[in-house]
Nucleic acid binder design. Structure first.
Lengths: 192, 192, 192, 192
DNA sequence: CATTAAACGAGACGGTACGTCGAGTCTTGTC
DNA sequence: GACAAGACTCGACGTACCGTCTCGTTTAATG
């Protein structure tokens, strides 16, 4: 029998919703290091076991929130005006606007902290900023247009930009958007 | 007089040494998230209070270990053969050799985790890989040589490479050194 | 309804038993001043929190042990042969036999120490020696028999005898049972 | 040579005074259980070692304060008007006036707590209330006067009264002076 | 006097226990 | 059988004191 029947209730969507909601809320308010399963359970009005039943760890919860866009509720689409450098810059500025929000740096560091603990978060961090889906795709377009050489390391370019943002955030210096914008201009401006 | 004299016992260098030693040892063996003050104290044969007396947090301990080269005991010097791209690649390969060691990825992720908690670690992470001291300096040399345009974002290039390594490490895909080497070749190869 | 229902696990009697057992055992072996919550938890194979959940302090634990007869497991009943002085002396000798046991003085002093910290212990110290239940009752009988004047301070007589024992124990002189027996004979011998 | 000479300073009376002062002050303000050597040292403006040099324990400090009348600065003299019962009652009321002061019960319990830890305190507790020096002496006078039978247990009577006070204090019931006065009247009123 | 050694203030040290927090597991009664 | 509630053992937190041990400074008897 492929189909295994069992009696009893099925997973409560209300509980799942309340848990992910509470997780996202607490993550924003307190950061990853102060996020606790107990706190989430109480905030969600849920038993601890209900969390442990469906998620193996704190990181997995964050991963699921991230995947559902509950942590960064923006769609970082990259336009295609034909000008690769300008399009990338548009994307970059929308990402940087997160960092420039109050506690934006702390938010990003919290995400990185979660990523160090949980592989799923690490894998989907770039994804939720549109790196693979939009940015890398747009860069590929730039190659087809001849704005980048055919041997350009497409995926690595996205990672490098994201990485530069992360490194800057870890340094906690006063955030300077323009310096990263400068980087992308250098990377994507037409080469002679 | 700046110097304020006080009688009484002086800070024990033996205790300081034992604590930093134990911290570095446990950090390598267990990673940052399993590192506890309690464990360090026991490993070092020291009272907990002696740690709290001199360091405000777990992160600060890691920061000091990092600054003293107890975590990454390598000097990542960048040669100057005249060929910028080749020199950067030399540096890069020595950095990547850490990642390729067993548990190398975990080590880097642990450092990043510490950096998310402690500003000092964040500030000195790049430093201890020679980014500011050697890599950035070498890139500046590349500008003087005319191998890079004068408006190249020197500091951001170092951050971008380091960031690309970090992002790759967070993703936990099978590590591929060549893809990052590819990135640096793209960045630093002579532009026409 | 006075009864407020709540679902969920119920207090573990096994844990309670183990804790009180361990408390009594350690109290006898080490005395009150060396008794620690940590030690009780370890001896009982129990988490510290389980102790703090149900008892507010070390003294309260001792109070409960005392009330359940785990510290002085004797029933100090007073006979009624008709001879008040003799009956009180019978009781007294059984109490003194505790003091005369090895470490008996230390046991009593430990109880007194606990009583100074915890009101409950103080209240039940006399009780567990049968002062209120048996001794005072027997003295009342003596009044009815005419062996004591009707205005005799019944309760205070019990306290005075117990107090004399305690004061003697605090003095740590070589214990002399006969001197206290002498006191009770004086107090209860037939008055002309 | 029996006499061993040495150079150097002698014991500082200022330090001794400051320490005993601080001890008495803190004992009154915080009670015995919150009294710490560190606290005394800081309050007295003295190094910890100076305390440990001259006193073996916290209890010994209290013992010395007690012996010097720094804890109960009253002289509990017993008058001799010829009326034994009345004289004892005079003494008793002055002792009870301590208990009736605010925190008087706590003070007595603190003294008892110290006595359970330190033999010296136990030995001198009664002494500092004038039990041996005055009360017992006065009772002996009562025997000589024929107000008490010759076989009265003189010392035990003093202990019994003190003990009754202590037991009442340990019970923390609302203090009732008259009940103890009643006891002494019963003990010392002329027997037919 | 100059010497010198002990007493002193200050406080760092290795420990032990404190009382609290959260982890992850288990138990109970309800839906 | 999923759920809310929460008791359970365990381990770490950061703090308070313990009693011992340097430190330099002060001080008084000895030489």
């Amino acid at each position: 029998m492929v189909n295994e029947h069992r009696s009893g209730p099925v997973r409560s969507t209300a509980a799942r919703e309340a848990i992910l909601d509470a997780t996202a809320r607490l993550f924003h308010n307190q950061g990853y290091d102060r996020l606790t399963i107990q706190g989430i359970a109480k905030e969600a009005g849920v038993g601890k076991q209900t969390i442990y039943r469906w998620w193996p760890s704190r990181g997995a919860l964050i991963g699921e929130c991230l995947a559902e866009g509950r942590l960064i509720p923006v769609d970082f689409v990259v336009p295609d005006t034909g000008d690769l450098a300008a399009d990338v810059e548009t994307w970059l500025r929308s990402v940087l606007s997160i960092l420039e929000a109050p506690e934006g740096g702390a938010l990003l560091r919290s995400l990185v902290a979660a990523a160090t603990e949980d592989a799923g978060v690490g894998a989907h961090l770039g994804e939720s900023l549109g790196v693979e889906k939009y940015l890398t795709e747009r860069i590929r377009g730039g190659i087809r247009d001849g704005q980048l050489p055919t041997d350009a390391p497409v995926e690595q370019l996205g990672r490098a930009i994201l990485g530069a943002i992360i490194v800057e955030s870890l340094g906690r210096e006063h955030h300077d958007s323009e310096s990263i914008v400068h980087l992308t201009r250098f990377l994507f401006s037409p080469r002679s």
